[in-house]
């Protein structure tokens, strides 16, 4: 019942009429340049700091050490509240140490720089669906920040606000906004940019004992060329297919089909997985979640289709409902 209420509320909020309707003026090149700066800043600056992530009633503090050298980016994040957790990242490779369960979760990302390079100028498409503007400067963690406001032009997406250090372009605060209400945010509460950082700080606390730990490799990805046999035939305006792929997920013998869509800022993923024979069919509907993420499941033919994205519930529902088996050309 509780979950029902929660879902109903999510839907209700998604169905309410939006207030935006700003004139679809061109976003200023200056603002777009700041956005680009955000993207490249972590590859140019070293920093250590403490940040807070909050979503709904959940608040969590973490410490971050970020070093950039000839070999790329190195990063350690320690979660300071609740169960101890440590995340080590070296470029695209991430390892998360969960000492309580003696587990290491690893993930290798394959996209990274390649995507933006291919995508060329998504900033143009960005301003088709968001009005991008600059707010008055604000001070975050003792740094003067420019404030970038991304206001959705329709109710198929959330609003975003970014606080960007004027000098380095580092993102010091970010918030996701649903009709004036912050549904998720992250903010640095203490930050030191530049200066010498002891590399020892990057060392994981637990790695020496990994012999007795269990390792879970979360995402092993294989890509097959184009023909997935599935397509999204009626996505909300602005959402375009970025890629389609098959991926092997943990504990699955059959690869799962994955279609990724984006509106230039946020992404929505559609996963299609054949149902196992004999298992009860999944129930169609929104899956409980919170923050900006919404998840929607339905059954199509013999497959379960799950749509995931940082978009309002109505958007994942529309995308999920427009997934069809593709009969070939």
């Amino acid at each position: 019942m509780i979950r029902f209420v929660q879902i109903a509320l999510l839907i209700l909020s998604g169905a309410a009429q939006p207030l935006f309707a700003q004139s679809p003026a061109e976003s200023s090149p200056e603002v777009l340049a700041i956005l680009q700066k955000i993207a490249s800043a972590p590859r140019q600056h070293n920093y250590t700091g403490t940040f807070i992530y909050s979503s709904g009633s959940h608040i969590e503090t973490s410490r971050i050490i970020h070093i950039q050298d000839q070999e790329g980016e190195h990063e350690k994040i320690e979660v300071l509240d609740g169960a101890p957790r440590e995340i080590i990242r070296n470029n695209d490779e991430m390892s998360c140490y969960l000492p309580e369960s003696k587990t290491i979760v690893t993930e290798k990302r394959w996209l990274r720089k390649s995507f933006p390079a291919i995508l060329s100028e998504p900033l143009n498409t960005l301003s088709e669906h968001y009005s991008v503007s600059k707010g008055p400067p604000e001070r975050i963690s003792d740094y003067d920040c420019e404030v970038i406001i991304l206001e959705p032009r329709d109710d198929m997406r959330y609003g975003h606000r970014l606080w960007v250090d004027i000098h380095t372009g580092l993102l010091l605060k970010a918030a996701v906004i649903d009709k004036g209400r912050v549904i998720e945010q992250f903010i640095f509460t203490q930050l030191k940019i530049g200066g010498s950082i002891d590399r020892e700080l990057l060392r994981p606390k637990y790695s020496a004992k990994t012999g007795e730990w269990r390792t879970i490799n979360l995402v092993s990805t294989t890509i097959e060329s184009g023909k997935l046999g599935w397509q999204v035939n009626n996505p909300p305006v602005g959402f375009k297919k970025m890629a389609e792929m098959k991926r092997t997920l943990s504990g699955k013998s059959i690869p799962v089909s994955h279609i990724a869509l984006s509106d230039g800022l946020v992404a929505v993923s559609v996963f299609i997985e054949p149902l196992e024979k004999g298992s009860p069919p999944p129930v169609q509907g929104l899956v409980p979640s919170y923050g900006a993420i919404n998840i929607y499941t339905r059954t199509v033919a013999d497959s379960m289709v799950t749509t995931v994205g940082e978009v309002p519930p109505s958007t994942v529902i529309q995308i999920g409902n427009s997934v069809v088996k593709y009969k070939g050309k």
Binding site: L32, L35, Q36, I38, A39, S40, A41, P42, R43, F51, Y53, S55, H58, E60, S62, I64, E75, I77, V79, D81, G82, R85, I87, R89, M94, C96, L98, V105, E107, R109, L111, R112, K113, F115, P116, A117, L119, S120, E121, P122, L123, L126, L171, A174, F186, S262, G264, L265
Partner: peptide, 20 residues
């Protein structure tokens, strides 16, 4: 570009949240 690079730079943060 912005979008996916930001994703990269923030990914670890996401991971933290998830793990949390």
């Amino acid at each position: 570009v912005f979008a996916l690079s930001v994703a990269a730079s923030l990914a670890a943060v996401a991971m933290v949240g998830w793990m949390g």
